[in-house]
Simulated scan of single mutants.
Amino acid sequence: MIIAKLISTCLGIGYIRKGAGTVAAFIGCIAWYFIQVRGVNALFDLITILVITIFGIWSASVVEIEWGKDSNRVVIDELLGMCISLFLIPAELKYIALAFVFFRFFDIVKPLYIRKAEVLPGGWGVMADDVLAGIYSNILLHIVVKMSF
């Protein structure tokens, strides 16, 4: 249970009382930027997203027993959503900032069937809405990047 709590709270970020999801998303942006400027490739990024997804589903399912469905302490889903938002996007601060804004919008407002994804059982529901928010953000970012050139 301790490992599941560490993972699901992103090493304790989820224990922040107000804005833990926003903090986790912001830290995800910072980490993604520093990883990208080191020149990693898309395969590394994809593997990172898959690992976060697997551990996120598992840990969110485990902590749900004690904390209840989709506890606000679980922020691994925000980290995943940011990674998906930034997938194959140039590591430029303007795009990372825009990814943060787009993702938080979709994650908070939950349009376009995002809210419906939360009904999935256990960790699947916790992670699915942020996956969709990340995908929508990523699509918008790709449009912005294409229009910028």
Rank of each mutant, 00 (worst) to 15 (best):
V40T: 14
D129E: 15
E64C: 04
F106I: 15
A99T: 05
I49K: 05
M147V: 09
G19F: 14
G19H: 10
L98N: 10
V101C: 07
K116W: 09
Y15T: 09
V37P: 00
G56Q: 11
A24M: 02
R17P: 09
A133W: 02
L79K: 04
D70K: 03
V131K: 05
S137N: 07
F34N: 01
L50I: 09
W58N: 07
V109W: 14
G39L: 00
I27P: 02
I13R: 08
F34P: 03
S148G: 00
G21P: 11
F149G: 09
C83Q: 15
A133C: 07
L46N: 02
S71A: 12
V51R: 01
I139C: 12
D130G: 09
L140R: 00
G56L: 03
L112N: 08
G56V: 05
F105L: 11
W67D: 13
E92W: 10
F87H: 02
Y95S: 07
F149E: 14
N41C: 12
A99E: 05
N138A: 04
L141D: 00
V145N: 04
L11H: 00
R104A: 08
I35Q: 04
F106Q: 11
F102C: 13
F102T: 10
F87Y: 15
T53V: 13
M82C: 07
L79Q: 01
I143S: 00
I16K: 10
V37K: 15
L132V: 14
F44W: 15
M127A: 11
A42Q: 14
I7N: 10
N72D: 12
T48A: 15
D107E: 12
L141F: 04
S8V: 08
V74R: 02
P121V: 07
D107F: 08
D70E: 12
P121R: 06
V63K: 11
A60N: 10
G123H: 06
L43W: 13
G68A: 06
S137E: 00
V131G: 00
I96M: 13
M147C: 05
V23D: 06
D77N: 02
A31S: 01
N41K: 01
A97T: 15
I49C: 11
F103R: 02
D77T: 03
L79I: 12
F100R: 03
L11E: 04
K110W: 13
G81A: 03
L120C: 02
V126G: 05
I65F: 05
D130V: 01
C83I: 01
G28K: 06
